[in-house]
Amino acid sequence: MGFMTLLTAGLAHGGLYALVALGLVLIYKTQGIVNWAHGELLMVGAFSGYTAFVLVGLPYPLAFLIAVLAGALLGAVMERVAFRGIVHEHHATLALVAIGFSVIIKGLARIPFGADVYTLPPAVDAGPLRFAGAIVTAQSVLTITISVGIALMLLAIFRYTRTGRQMQATQQNLNGARIVGVNTGRIFSITWALAAAVGAVAGLLAGPTSLLYPDMGSEFLLKGFAAAVLGGFYSVTGAIVGGLLVGVIEMLIGGYISTAFQQVSPFLIIIIVLFVRPHGLFGRRPVERV
C-alpha cells in the first residue's frame, strides 16, 4: 500500500477515534469522570443502527437518528442513575461503576446477538475513489467528513449557544456555575447525552470497516484513550487532532513495521506521551497548588 493510501485510511480510522476521544474529554472536563464504559456506548450505537437499518429495514438516515438517540439516552441515564450521586467518591469507585456498566451493557447485548459477528453495510454504496495517488473508499470520505463536521459543530455549540457556554462554565468552575444560576444537573445530563451520541455516531461509521460484536467497544475505548491523552484530556481540539494522529500512526506502523506492533501502538502512544509530555499536545501544564 502506498503512503497516501495508508494516510487516508489512517485519517478515516482516526476520525472514529477522535469521536470517541471527544466524548471521553467532554465527560472528564465536566465531572472529572473517566468513562470506562464509553466503548459500550459506541457498541450500542452500532447495534441500534444495525437493528433499525438491517433488521427492521428503515432508511439509513432514520436508522442513524435512532442509533444516536439510543446512545444519548443511555449516556444520560447512566449519569443520572449512577454517577451524579457518587461524583465525589474515589476515582477507583467511579472506574468500577463505569466498568460495571460496561459489563452490564455487553451482557445485555449478548442476549439477542450472542457470540456472532455482524456487518453493517456502508452508508454510501459507491466504489473506491482515486485521489492523489491514494485509493480511498467512499465510507472513508464520509467518516472523515462527519468526524470533522461533528467536531466543528461542538466547538460552535460551546462558543455560540447559551447551553454551550453554560457547559463551558460548568467545566471551568462547578461552584461558579452554580452561583450564576446554571442548572448544573441539566448540564451533566446534556454533556453525557452529547458525548454518548457522538460515540454512537462513531459506532455507526465504524460498522462497515470493523465488525459488530458485543465486545467491539474495548478496542475503540483504548484508541480513544490514546487520542485523548495525546490531545491533553482537557481539550476538544486536542481530542480531534489526537484521534487523527493515533489513526495515522497506527496505519503507518501497520504498513511499514508490523501488524503485531500495530496492535500495541495505542498503548505505546499512551506510555510515551505520558512520560514525555504528560499534559499532551494541547493541555496546559498542571499547576500544583498548596
Binding site: 447559551r162 453554560q166 471551568q172 461552584n175 452561583i179
Partner: peptide, 27 residues
C-alpha cells in the same frame, strides 16, 4: 439571590467580559 463567594469562583479560562455575560446567561 446572587452570591459573591469568598473564593470568587470565577471562570478562569474566560475573559472578563465572558465572565460578566455568564452572570446573566442563566436568566
Amino acid at each position: 439571590i446572587s452570591l459573591v463567594a469568598q473564593s470568587r469562583e470565577l471562570f478562569p479560562e474566560m475573559t472578563v467580559r465572558q465572565n460578566l455575560e455568564l452572570g446573566v446567561l442563566a436568566q
